[in-house]
Design a protein around this nucleic acid. Structure first.
Lengths: 215, 215
DNA sequence: CGGTAAGCTGACGGCATGACAGGACAAGTG
DNA sequence: CACTTGTCCTGTCATGCCGTCAGCTTACCG
């Protein structure tokens, strides 16, 4: 997948180089968690990593470029989201279980990577194709699995024919992502995390199967 | 509501001052539509408005402050979203109509103000209380109406008792907002706008009533 | 017409950006 | 061990934006 890691000016990075590069990425990641995206400066990241701005520019064209790199790593790691739906059933009690575990896993993944996902979301919303494709890559596994589930139920005649599986799946995934991004919002809105999850699972189950879950 | 408009150093703004102030806001708004938030610079906004950076700083503490102002104006205008749900029924064919019109109105509002809403969303997700409250203010009308509708149906025994109306309403609103933000994403994902709307309406109807709509 | 406050800008120190050349360092070679 | 090679890092510099201030112009009012 990833060929050789290269510097901006074309040299191949050796062991030491890759270490500093990664350190810069880690520091940037940390920085994104603690300050607004707009205020993250190259010089701060470099200082935090105990190096100089010039070094940063040796490995990345700019902050955006480095963010893309971090997001790429996260996307690879996020392939585990597929497991949340692989071979699961949407029928009866098992369906309710599936919905719950999907919500659980999704929210946790999002919370763990919230800072970087915020930026990816922004970039995608602003129309940047690179961020946009990355967002797809991350959500694709879940999205496809959900769409398949809907399509399958539709083939069995248990879901209306005028339902568009891709549209429903995409909307549900967008919902999960949005709720995860604004989890704190809900809490001060009188809804606790523990209460939020089952209600989300209910909505997912309703969306996929068109029916209330049997608990 | 709005007291007197004041400059940063405390002077009250007169007719001319308010005009330039508004012009700066308009130019900033335009700028946000055409370039990434991170790259919007005070000097560009000032140039576009035919004035100097110093003038900008006379009226706003920084870019963020000006964005808040624009968002505040939009929030006031967005009160019209309430009408989408005021006195509507969720029963039978009327319910389907209600869901469709809600989706329609919501998506249009979001599309019309997408640039500024992106920034508000980011600020809220980053934990900035000012943006966060603003986002609530905008979504509150729809959110409350939806929660009321769910609670009402619940009181009639047509919705399960363990459903949390606020959680469901919040999730649905978050879904609408997220889908609206990434409308372009869906289109290149094989789902056309026209197809998207009825599927969203279906999900909203399912979420509120727990049942498929009668069309 | 003179006073007062609003409105605007040129100019400036400070800082971030991004490029380059050259020094420091590790590893291999004779 | 000296020497070479290629990687790695940083000092430095030109450029450009930030945010502030003093001071000039304009509008209003008695």
């Amino acid at each position: 997948m990833t060929g050789q890691v290269r510097t901006v000016d074309g040299r191949v990075a050796g062991r030491r180089g890759q270490a500093t590069r990664q350190k810069l990425l880690d520091c940037l990641s940390e920085m994104l968690s603690s300050s607004p995206y707009r205020d993250v400066k190259v010089i701060d990241v470099a200082r935090k990593a105990g190096t100089s701005p010039a070094t940063f520019y040796q490995y990345f064209p700019d902050v955006e470029g480095a963010v893309l790199e971090i997001a790429e790593q996260m996307a690879a790691e996020g392939a585990t989201l597929t497991e949340l739906l692989q071979g699961r059933s949407w029928a009866g009690k098992a369906g309710w279980q599936t919905a719950q575990e999907l919500v659980d896993g999704f929210l946790e993944f999002w919370r763990k990577n919230d800072a970087i996902l915020r930026v990816v979301d922004l970039g995608a919303a602003e129309g940047d194709k690179r961020f946009y494709k990355l967002r797809m890559k991350i959500l694709n596994s879940v999205n496809n699995s959900l769409a398949d589930a809907v399509a399958e139920l539709q083939a069995k005649g248990r879901v209306d024919k005028d339902v568009n599986p891709a549209a429903v799946a995409g909307s549900l995934v967008a919902m999960l992502a949005a709720v995860a991004s604004h989890q704190k919002g809900f809490s001060s809105w009188g809804v606790k995390q523990a209460e939020l999850k089952p209600n989300l699972a209910l909505l997912v189950h309703l969306g996929v199967t068109g029916r209330k879950p049997t608990k």
